[in-house]
Simulated scan of single mutants.
Amino acid sequence: MSEHGGNVVETGQQLGIDPALLLDFSANINPLGLPERVRALIVSHLDIITHYPDVEYRHLHQALASANRCEYDQTIAGNGETELIYGLVRTLAPRSAMLLVPGFAEYRRALQQQGCQIIDYALSEQDGFQVDFALLDAVRTHRPDCLFIATPNNPTGLMPDAGLLDRLASLCEELHIALIVDEAFIDFLPQGSTLAPRLAGSRYLYLLRSLTKFFAIPGLRLGYLLSGNKETIHHLKRTREPWSVNAFSALVGQHLLSDEDYISRSHAYIARQRDVLLQAMARFPSLMVWKPEANFIFFRCLRQGFNLKAALLRHHILIRHCENYPGLDSAWYRIAVRTEAENRRFIEALTHVLHDADDGIFSNLLPPAG
């Protein structure tokens, strides 16, 4: 199995403690938690558990189409975004695919299951792990059947230049290359997706979305796919297993994207806490930190051979080790932006395990609470 964030049960068992005692910085979930609208919907509709969901998910698909200003038959909901990654790869059946490295592990696993040749396009630390226009030349040279790109990237949290994305979409359309854009964290960006307006006129653009991260419902498992290629969407709906989305997920998904108050509060709170956390981490000489646009922070520990994850676990804090991402090693980590109090606890533990408190420069890393 691939390693992912949020694996508190296994970690708790390994440590011999109740998983509830762990402070989880490894899963990139909205720190504001479950929207009250979701809680109220589930409580007031408990009886739907006694009925099968609509196998076509008509109301859910209509709500997703309306929220994204696209047509009903240009969207499909799934049991989390991951189901749609695997389903799309099976449907497209690419012989070759280009992946940006480092990147989310499930693209590679899905492609490998189909026997697809994988072309790695390495992002370098020297270039700040940011993709540039050289990617266009690589696409022209290799002519893959499909290209995966995450915006923002996971694990770096970086967004490619909007102009580059536009030219990339045009190039893939011209060369008949499926451009699969993972927008799992796009809801954390107030400006949203720059590629969505291209859907109506495209046959090769696919936008993957997750609702579990921004709306803090990972246990419900809900994502969706948008594409102007209606034939592909129709094929996905026709060939997948029935009832992959449960009744509660289908109900909740009809209302999430219209919760404007929760969305605006989340943007403001996460931006504020991310900036404070980033500034605090950047003051540690032992860390090299990348400024993200998502709700998580990517960084490298400069202490040779030091296992920061293990050290923080002694303080019951779980962070995401990035050594299983191709192109990275054991020095790389990722943490989520959490609440003010939780972020403060993380910085206090980090100060302790790196032994930098003796330097006297970390006494005021974070501003006063409140």
Results as ranks from 00 to 15, higher is better:
Q112Y: 04
A110F: 06
P94R: 11
F133Q: 12
A122R: 10
L88G: 11
A97R: 06
D137S: 15
Y86F: 11
A110V: 15
P144W: 08
F148W: 00
L135D: 02
Y107P: 10
A134L: 03
D127I: 12
E125Q: 11
G78K: 02
L111I: 04
D120S: 06
E106T: 09
D137W: 06
P102C: 09
H142M: 04
S96G: 06
R143M: 05
D132K: 09
I119T: 02
A77W: 01
D120A: 10
P102A: 09
A77K: 01
T91S: 12
Q113V: 06
E125C: 15
R140H: 05
Y121A: 09
V131D: 01
L84I: 07
T141A: 12
A134G: 14
V101W: 03
G128P: 15
L136F: 05
D132L: 03
A122M: 08
R90M: 11
G78A: 09
V89N: 07
L84E: 14
F133V: 12
L147A: 05
L88A: 15
A134M: 02
A93V: 00
E81V: 00
E81R: 01
E83W: 08
P102T: 13
A97P: 04
Q113Y: 11
L111P: 06
R140M: 02
E81F: 05
L135H: 02
Q112W: 05
L135N: 01
R90Y: 14
Y107A: 06
R140K: 13
